[in-house]
Design a protein around this nucleic acid. Sequence first.
DNA 1: CGCCAATTCCCGTTGAACGGGAATCAATCT
DNA 2: AGATTGATTCCCGTTCAACGGGAATTGGCG
Lengths: 251, 251
Amino acid sequence: MANSASGEGVAERIVRVLETFGVDRTVQTASEIGRRAGLPSSTAHRLVDELVRAGILERDDERRLRLGLRLWELAQRGSTALRLRQAALPHMERVQAELREHTQLAVLEREEALFLERLSHPEAVSNITRVAGRLPLHASSSGLVLLAHADPALRERVLGSPLRAVGPGTVTDARALRRLLGEIRRTGFAAAPGSIEAVSTGVAVPLRDRGSVIAALSAVLPRDAPIAPALRALREAAAGIEAGLRAARED
Amino acid sequence: MANSASGEGVAERIVRVLETFGVDRTVQTASEIGRRAGLPSSTAHRLVDELVRAGILERDDERRLRLGLRLWELAQRGSTALRLRQAALPHMERVQAELREHTQLAVLEREEALFLERLSHPEAVSNITRVAGRLPLHASSSGLVLLAHADPALRERVLGSPLRAVGPGTVTDARALRRLLGEIRRTGFAAAPGSIEAVSTGVAVPLRDRGSVIAALSAVLPRDAPIAPALRALREAAAGIEAGLRAARED
DNA sequence: CGCCAATTCCCGTTGAACGGGAATCAATCT
DNA sequence: AGATTGATTCCCGTTCAACGGGAATTGGCG
């Protein structure tokens, strides 16, 4: 028999299992995983056992499952994300210290904004993004910057799909969004008041490497705060990071 | 046929493939991977293709392979490491700002010290550790702290195995190491001058959760610097992190 | 004890994975 | 231009590891 369910490979199935874990669901029983991944119970148990043996999953004291440290370790190695994060971190710290607000780094992944890093500030306004969290491209300042500089085909795809509102200020009209993206390209930054939460405004600038935009650097400000100082700090940091990336290439 | 090589499962084989990537080897051809993982060429290509389809590996412009962002994303979710890192990061930043030296966070994984986080300071002395890097337990201040508080069986295993010198000051004598570990338990910190590089001294303190040591927090100082200020800063940070972990449990 | 869910064990079936080998493509050298 | 080396793709017969249904077992919990 072997894999009668559908024409998918083992790796895909493993990813499905890993995807049953989430920011909100970090430990589960084998049966839960099986149910969520759509696997027969006995199959789920066998597969989970194998993943534990391989170090991809770990069992805690109660024999419940969580993602293994080994997976994290493997993922860190050599990922492009890591290099970018390493180059960006010191500059992000400076921005965070200066602004006293959350500072974030995001990249485009599978038509969404994926947050690579987030330095939170205890006194700053609330903000839902997390490391390894995702947001739709049209619903955050970082996403807007990424979308504005993305491949035109992707941009049209997003503009043509329904634009879900995340916060009260999310731009959900395709025509307005298209105009906004043009403006972001022209001015070199995005401001998204209330696009996620009513109380906050995101400000983001693009980060370039070899000419093309590879990430967005952003800060989360209180709704009514002036954006000029944040923008200056972010731009300065972006320039520093870009210089770092250029220098790193010269090794 | 199916997997004639040996009695290992698919997951183990996939991990072997992922392990061929390293900090120093982040992109490879499919054939390279196959050779290093001990797979026949055609098998390697098929497997790699599947991993790319699953998003675990990515192809760059030249069709060479690198670890995928999706893997990183999955790994971040829900790992214990992430929670610890998140709790520790702000305190580490404070230590780094105060000492102006590298600050690191390490845990015990498979009989080695695995570095979860590292804040580097541009003006500080060189230091070879990296995020997701590993060092033998006896060869770094962090490792010594972890070893001193590790399960006695593991400790004996390490003491009984050959102790490779990494730097000029690495303790390689089992008897001396045993005495040193006792002292670390007594004093509550480890100082390791030159254990990795001649020019630097590592200072590390344990990080406890529910009574047992789960990680080590360390700083890298110039060889002749006084360790007292660093020790004070590290201890203060450790206390703060431990309080944070306790508070997080109350949710 | 009775109930429910998780887990483990058993086992007959079978097709997906395997890998040897040859062909193709792409650089690089002579 | 022809030869060489290595990566990649394609083909295909073999086969056994994976599969999953089902039953038995464990373990809380009221």
